Amino acid sequence: MGTWPLLVDFECSILRRDELTPAAERAGAVLRGNVPAPAIERLPAALRGLWKPLNRIAARNIDRLLELLPGQSPLLLVVGGGTIGNGVSAAYADPRVQVVGFDIVGSPHTQFVADAHQIPLADRSADAVLVQAVLEHVLDPGCVVAEIHRVLKDDGLVYAETPFLQQVHAGAYDFTRFTASGHRFLFRRFDELDAGSVAGPGTQLLWSVDYLIRGLTRTATAGRVVRAALFWLRLLDVLIPREYQADNASAFYFLGRKRDRDMSPEEIVAYYPGAQTGRARPWREAP
């Protein structure tokens, strides 16, 4: 398929060969310059920043991940790496790191095409995995995280960002959302090095206003214009304490290290980081 190896077991995958081929042709057209860049990419940098500001949380966490990577030429696997994610460019710029990306569509940033439910790498072959804004788009996030755990070396690292309160943003290919506790439980076979909100209630409100205007006007363009005009709502995030962000965040991040032990039910209930602590009950207590 084009210049990218197609490493998909179609008998066990939800992906279909006849769906991937047209996608590859579109990707090849983009590489050849036959398809114009999205409108937002053609705007001046200052205006693009109003719509999609730098993800400083990701940039900070990627810097930390790079510091934790061992030895020379560590392998960083990027799941859903068709584009370079917001705030993670330092990983691609680090000459010490071998970045290997894959997606269901080939791009200049991917080495092969594959299904994240069946990562075509050997056990314990990667030093770290980056999975940013991907797990909401897979049918079985638990299966994908299990695959990430499998391909990581002992004590390997994972960095993930996943939505909590965001509207549908990939049509039929948007499936799942996670609370802070749900996101932690998804990575229950990892030690937590850090976790928290990527974007808080102000950003979440901005998403809601955008989609409200889309619904009222029946056009996504109007929503985007209003979203750009109300960019300052994001600034409210810094005023919200961490525990209140946990109950009302736009998205969460998790930075962890591989381990072999699962979290227990008691541990995940005790983990809850939000502001509603007085409502927690022992997990065995009858309703």
Results as ranks from 00 to 15, higher is better:
Met1Lys: 07
Gly2Lys: 03
Thr3Gly: 02
Trp4Tyr: 15
Pro5Cys: 04
Val8Tyr: 00
Glu11Ser: 15
Ile14Pro: 10
Leu15His: 11
Leu15Asn: 11
Glu19Phe: 09
Glu19His: 14
Ala23Tyr: 14
Glu25Cys: 13
Arg26His: 14
Arg26Lys: 11
Ala27Leu: 08
Gly28Val: 03
Val30His: 07
Leu31Glu: 15
Arg32Ala: 15
Gly33Asn: 05
Gly33Met: 05
Asn34Ile: 00
Val35Arg: 12
Pro36Cys: 09
Leu43Lys: 06
Ala45Val: 10
Ala45Glu: 10
Ala46Asn: 07
Leu50Thr: 04
Arg56Trp: 15
Ile57Gln: 03
Ile57Asn: 02
Ala58Gly: 09
Ile62Asp: 02
Ile62Thr: 10
Leu65Gln: 03
Leu66Gly: 08
Gly71Phe: 00
Leu75Ala: 06
Leu75Tyr: 05
Leu76Trp: 14
Gly81Asp: 12
Gly81Glu: 10
Gly82Gln: 04
Asn86Ala: 12
Gly87Pro: 06
Gly87His: 08
Ser89Leu: 10
Ala90Arg: 15
Ala91Lys: 09
Ala91Gln: 07
Tyr92Asp: 09
Pro95Asp: 14
Pro95Tyr: 06
Val97His: 07
Gln98Ala: 09
Gln98Pro: 13
Gln98Asp: 15
Val100His: 14
Phe102Arg: 03
Phe102Gln: 04
Ile104Gly: 01
Gly106Met: 12
Thr110Met: 09
Val113Phe: 13
Ala114Thr: 14
Asp115Gly: 10
Ala116Cys: 05
Ala122Asp: 06
Arg124Gln: 14
Val131Ala: 14
His137Ile: 09
Pro141Phe: 11
Val145Ile: 09
Ile148His: 02
Ile148Pro: 00
Arg150Val: 13
Arg150Asp: 13
Val151Ile: 07
Val151Gln: 01
Asp154Thr: 05
Gly156Gln: 10
Gly156Arg: 06
Gly156Thr: 08
Leu157Phe: 08
Pro163Gly: 01
Pro163Gln: 03
Pro163Glu: 00
Leu165Lys: 13
Leu165Asp: 05
Leu165Val: 07
Ala180Glu: 02
His183Ile: 05
Leu186Glu: 01
Phe187Val: 01
Arg188Glu: 12
Ala195Cys: 13
Ala195Phe: 09
Ser197Cys: 15
Ala199Phe: 04
Pro201Gly: 01
Ser208Arg: 03
Leu212His: 04
Arg214Trp: 13
Ala222Phe: 15
Gly223Leu: 06
Arg224Val: 01
Val225Cys: 10
Val226His: 10
Leu233Lys: 12
Leu233Glu: 07
Arg234Gly: 04
Leu235Phe: 06
Leu236Tyr: 13
Leu236His: 06
Leu236Gln: 08
Val238Lys: 14
Val238Glu: 05
Pro241Glu: 02
Arg242Met: 05
Glu243Val: 07
Ala246Gly: 04
Ala246Glu: 10
Ser250Glu: 00
Ala251Lys: 09
Tyr253Gln: 02
Leu255Pro: 09
Gly256Ile: 11
Lys258Ser: 15
Lys258Tyr: 15
Asp260Glu: 12
Asp262Ser: 11
Ile268Val: 04
Ile268Ser: 01
Ala270Cys: 07
Tyr272His: 12
Tyr272Phe: 07
Gly274Ile: 03
Gly278Ser: 12
Gly278Pro: 00
Gly278Ala: 13
Arg279Asp: 08
Arg281Ser: 15
Arg284Gly: 12
Ala286Met: 11
Pro287Leu: 15
